[in-house]
Design a protein around this nucleic acid. Structure first.
Lengths: 136, 136
DNA sequence: TCATCTGTAATAATTGTTGTTACAGTACAA
DNA sequence: TTGTACTGTAACAACAATTATTACAGATGA
């Protein structure tokens, strides 16, 4: 990720879902999340790129959901903010002269992949609609 | 985590497993992993705390596995390096005056928990022994 | 008693993340 | 047609987290 982005994105989407189609400004969103509006706008651009939200510029502009909350799974949001495997990209180059070092990243990658798959499958079970029902 | 620690710990354990009980120095381990020996020693201290390895000080000292590789699951290693939920600790305080902000961390935590559970269950299926079979 | 190792602290360097400022461009509304 | 309230975006500053480095006391074996 970075992981924070997942929380921010979900937070944004929940707020938009509650706005029921009316356009919400990045400052308002930022106020609820308690982060900088520019970060929100960046996140919105990403969410838009993935088809979750639409934006309107200019006065009374803002963002709104682009599709029904029932059609947005938390797993989809996860994919939208995912940058690398959650268990960690292998940033270092282990020693290629060592038989273990030479192979380990490849083997770890397989483990990482299946572990992340399991996590994603779990996130597939919850949609923005079902998740937002928790908010009373 | 931080995620890197998981890879480092697994790497260490694989090397120790291959050493078949003989003691391996932190410099040697660091050389294969290609990181600083002090980091390795810190990681070894953690692995020891969790009962995976034993250490011997002084000349010809080093580390060795403290239990059979078959009794160490990757999930156990994960727990040993885990610091917070992998999907992210909610570092920021959302606006408590916002009905969504006030509740979201609690609700996210539940989602995070079940997602991580799924990931861990997957890691339970692989032991250090089975994983090390991949190395030829 | 020397050499080699761990354990540990303190601190520096590096990288990653988040916040801030600034401003061009869009759209509405008076 | 001009002011106001927004987005989109870049550039950069501040801060946090991670990793590396240096240093050294203490253990152990030869």
């Amino acid at each position: 990720m970075n992981n924070r982005r997942f929380a921010v994105s979900v937070h944004i989407l929940i707020l938009l879902q509650q706005a029921q189609g009316s356009y919400v400004s990045s400052s308002y969103l930022a106020g609820s999340i308690n982060i900088n509006p520019v970060l929100v706008r960046k996140e919105l651009i990403n969410l838009r790129k993935h088809g979750f939200v639409q934006a309107r510029e200019g006065k009374n502009g803002g963002a709104a959901l682009a599709k029904p909350a029932a059609d947005i799974r938390l797993a989809d949001v996860y994919h939208a903010v995912r940058e690398k495997n959650i268990l960690g990209e292998n940033r270092t180059e282990p020693n290629p002269k060592c038989p273990v070092g030479k192979q380990i990243n490849g083997h770890l990658e397989e483990v990482y992949h299946s572990a992340e798959q399991a996590l994603v499958r779990q996130l597939e079970s919850e949609t923005l609609a079902s998740f937002s029902k928790r908010f009373t």
